[in-house]
Write a protein that binds this DNA or RNA. Structure first.
Length: 128
RNA sequence: UCAGACGGUCGGACAGCCGCGGCUUUUAACGUCGAGGAAAGUCCGGGCUCCAUGGAAGCAGGGUGCCGGGUAACGCCCGGCGGCGUGGCAACACGUCAGGGAAAGCGCCGCAGAAAAUAUACCGCCUUCCAUUGCGGAGGUAAGGGUGAAAAGGUGCGGUAAGAGCGCACCGCGUUGGCAGCAAUGUCGAUGGCAUGGCAAGCCCCGCCCGGAGCAAGACCGAAUAGGAUCGGCAUUGAUAGGCUUUGCUUAUCACGGCGCGCUUUCACGCUGGAUCGGUCGGGUUGGUCGCUUGAGGCCUUGCGCAAGCAAGGCCCCAGAGGAAUGGUUGUACAUCUUGCUUUGGCCUAUGGCCAAAACGCAGGAGGACAGAACCCGGCUUAUAGACCGUCUGACGCU
RNA sequence: CGGGGCGUAGCGCAGCCUGGUAGCGCAUCUGUUUUGGGAACAGAGGGUCGCAAGUUCGAAUCUUGCCGCCCCGA
């Protein structure tokens, strides 16, 4: 666990997590980052974020390209990232924002704890 | 204890002998592994392979359909909502549902009935006129009768000549607002005064999804035969520069034309301007190797989640054959069925006979369903003797 | 293994798309005609629409699932 973890318990507000599905949403976020958005790079993924359409929740989308492997490895990456999101995002994601995780090759082998820490770091940078 | 409903798990065990298929290998022997929950139907969804140059938009064709979640994906699964049915006073429980749209349009609603979607008036009811007391004329009305699967909101009260949402209350419906919920939807009001019959598993509209073919895909090696026939597409370019074997050939760039597999448009890209590209037919082979099994794989533990399921950690390797191998037999227990003995009870024509029941005991016999991998997974559907577990309901007995 | 098609009277087929009456030919039976038969004429009988569920007021017909038969493909 890194030292940036656990905020004081009375300040914790659980953000609701949604799935980002529409192609249009992905395309919109691709152009946002210059003005106040988030762009966080890591060995395992690239995290992009910006203001979203749903004010009450944070929505997450995954992009895993064919470059990373065949269908089975790609799906495995998706499952691991989703699991990380489910544990980390309710505590650290900003309400009313959309995020996209673009997976990179390290997401296959990297330990799960490292993956979670990286995601936490990225989201906290955006919140600050 | 028995019976029933629902859900889940398993679906013959162990040992000997004789055999079968793969691997290993010295063609042997030894060793090792060797069918399923449905391997099935091929009804959906994927992986994988080949074909099509890729992106976008539209059309055609097919599929799907409450909401949210799960999933690689689905027509599947989980949770929720709503309708219908059964039980119940009710709360509710169980079952079930192809459950978007019928005030966008078209179409259909046989027979019966006056009338089947622009409403209408057969028997009636009421008013009135004539007057030869009628099967009469005019008007009002749709409560009652009758037909039908369905009759133009339902029930009750008021009202009226008789009636009618004509008025009122409740219910239903439409419009609209608040609250709860991610949503389907629920609930509480306000308001309209009835406008909106049913069928979309008829056409259709709306949202979403989908390229085609399949391991007999496809790749390689070898053999053999032929070196064919026929059909179709477009063309036989221009300019500039360079090279050479210098009146021609060739290379590059640009322009122009053509082609690129359901159709059209557009953008990019590629091929081509050749004795070239593609299709169909005919002829030959009926050999081998790969694809072919480590996979969205199993089992256990932990965490998250109501659940479907997901993640992390550990352990394991579990059919890969060619039209196709797992079988037979003997023994031992075991579930179950059955016969006799035995035991218990009852009756009688009473040292016996008959009837009924059986928890335990003894002996004998029978006896274990549906069904067999063929590239591999996820579902659905169908077939299935019997056993076990859980929940609920009912009956009987005991405490 | 994969892909198509068809089940309606004893036999061969319509009807299904667009749902309300199951029809045609041959065969069978009865009658007329003939001395008798055939032929002809007139009339009659005969069908769980492969099975089962669903949609609908109503299903041979529409939808789904089973069963059987036939055809094609290296």
């Amino acid at each position: 666990m890194s030292q940036v973890s656990q905020p004081p318990i009375d300040q914790v507000t659980l953000t609701e997590i949604r799935v980002l599905k529409k192609r249009a949403d992905f395309l919109r976020l691709r152009h946002i980052p210059k003005d106040g958005g988030l762009r966080f790079s890591h060995k395992a993924f690239l995290l992009v974020g910006g203001p979203g359409l749903d004010p009450k929740s944070a929505r997450f989308g995954l992009t895993v390209t064919k470059k990373l492997g065949n269908a089975v490895t790609r799906n495995r990456i998706k499952r691991r990232l989703r699991a990380a999101i489910r544990e980390i995002a309710p505590l650290f994601a900003k309400q009313g924002h959309d995020y996209i995780l673009i997976a990179r090759s390290a997401a296959t082998e990297l330990p799960f704890e490292t993956l979670k820490d990286a995601l936490k770091l990225g989201l906290e940078r955006h919140k600050a």
